[in-house]
Simulated assay, not measured.
Amino acid sequence: MIFMDQISDHPRENDANDASIEIQVKTTFVPEHSDSKLNRFAFGYEIHIANRGLHTVQLMDRHWQIDMGNGCIQEVRGEGVVGEQPVLAPGESYQYQSGAIIETPAGRMWGDYGFVTENGERFRAPIPLFHLLAPDQFRPIH
């Protein structure tokens, strides 16, 4: 894996329930699962989610938009993350790893997570846009 020097750190607030979710993203290019001749560029990403609010929250679902870098945007929705719906008390954090395969050496991802508080209030926490960039040696010249 080739680690990219990219971390997004944007606290997100929801005034209705005093929830504050901080999301950090770190990306990696995965050359062993990539093939530029087949327009296949694999990336891993590590997400760190921290509850900076006053209430316990549970991550219920995810919504991703993946810009393939060629004009196509793939939308992904699903329950939880990597098969889990973590519960975060105030001050707690959760970290997971996942990945995406795109059709070009440069793309982007963004989206949001759906949370519910211990009081049953639902809110969405935006995931900041982050870039998927293959190193120069993996970018074909046309």
Rank of each mutant, 00 (worst) to 15 (best):
I47Q: 11
V81S: 07
R122G: 06
I47H: 10
I127N: 01
F43G: 02
D136K: 14
R52A: 09
S93K: 07
L38C: 02
E22P: 00
H10Y: 13
R124G: 01
R12S: 14
G69F: 04
Y45D: 01
H33G: 00
T56H: 05
Y96P: 03
D35H: 09
F29D: 01
I102N: 01
N14R: 09
Q74N: 14
G83N: 08
M4R: 12
A134L: 07
Y96N: 06
P90V: 06
L38W: 01
I7P: 00
G99N: 05
E46L: 10
H142D: 11
F43I: 01
R52P: 00
S98P: 01
E118K: 14
T28E: 11
I102K: 02
L88P: 01
L132M: 05
P135R: 11
G91Y: 05
D15T: 09
G69D: 07
M4V: 10
E84G: 02
A100H: 02
H33Y: 12
P90G: 07
S8C: 11
I23F: 03
S98R: 03
G111Y: 06
G69H: 06
E118D: 15
I102G: 02
Y94I: 04
P90Q: 07
Q97W: 04
Y45N: 04
S93P: 00
A89S: 15
S8L: 13
L88F: 04
D112Y: 12
Q6S: 09
S20T: 12
M109Y: 01
H142S: 13
I7Q: 12
Y113S: 03
T27F: 01
V25F: 00
Y113K: 03
Q58H: 03
R77C: 11
C72N: 15
F138K: 07
E84K: 15
F138R: 07
R77G: 01
G53S: 08
D136G: 11
D35W: 03
K26F: 01
Y45E: 02
E92A: 14
M4A: 13
A125W: 01
L133N: 10
V82W: 05
G111F: 03
A19Q: 10
R108A: 15
